[in-house]
């Protein structure tokens, strides 16, 4: 039972204060909480059921804390993840510079994890274009280079948020369907071998 209730593990990564929790909040509860900033403690888990091409997929989303204190711990949260949403603040170039570290770690330790770059707080740019601290084309080039998808979102307005997670789920369905066909089941030693022989002798 345990662990089985989730189809795809999705992990949110990125520096503190880029808005990972707000993004999850918008996606899961469709709301945006205005109030003083509250940093996430450790990590928070939410499961979200969605349907993709007639199939139900349960995304298990791990919203991790951005603060340095938990960095050593982050591996347990992204281990085995099918998708990583690496967030940066569109108005804060330093938050994008940290992106590289996460991407490197993912590429080194989780080769099956698909990466989604997510620029947050795009509504701030709508107010004032000069606030943009990270150039769209630079990130697009980077995304192509590391074979990642790129989304620019706003948790406040909801812009592109559903699209992002929809894409995550679609990719998951698409790629696992492919995996099931290619992945041969190995021999399970713990299984009683009797059944094999029985069927064998009768043919």
């Amino acid at each position: 039972m345990s662990g089985q209730r989730v189809d795809a593990k999705v992990v949110m990564l990125g520096k503190e204060y880029v808005g990972k929790t707000s993004l999850v909040e918008r996606y899961v509860h469709n709301r945006f909480l205005v109030g003083p900033y509250q940093n996430t403690i450790g990590a928070a888990f939410v499961a979200k059921v969605m349907s993709v091409a007639g199939r139900t997929v349960t995304l298990g989303i791990w919203d991790t804390a951005g603060s340095e204190r938990y960095e050593a711990m982050s591996r347990i949260y992204y281990r085995g993840a099918k998708a990583a949403i690496v967030c940066y603040d569109l108005t804060d170039s330093s938050s994008f510079q940290q992106e590289n570290l996460w991407v490197h770690e993912l590429q080194n330790f989780e080769e099956h994890c698909r990466i989604y770059l997510c620029g947050t707080k795009s509504d701030l740019l709508d107010e004032d274009r000069r606030k943009r601290g990270v150039d769209f084309h630079d990130v697009q080039d980077y995304a192509d280079e590391i074979k990642a998808e790129l989304f620019e979102t706003s948790s406040k307005t909801g812009q592109n948020v559903d699209e992002l997670f929809q894409k995550v789920a679609e990719d998951y369905v698409h790629f696992t369907a492919f995996q099931v066909m290619t992945e041969e089941k190995g021999v399970d030693l713990s299984q009683k071998s009797g059944t094999y022989f029985y069927s064998c002798c009768h043919h």
């Binding site: 929790t21 999850v24 909040e25 899961v28 509860h29 509250q38 940093n39 996430t40 403690i41 450790g42 990590a43 928070a44 888990f45 939410v46 919203d63 804390a65 938990y70 711990m73």
Partner: peptide, 10 residues
């Protein structure tokens, strides 16, 4: 923040 989902923290 613990009101959202399940927290798992060291």
């Amino acid at each position: 923040s613990f009101r959202e989902g399940e927290a798992w923290t060291p």
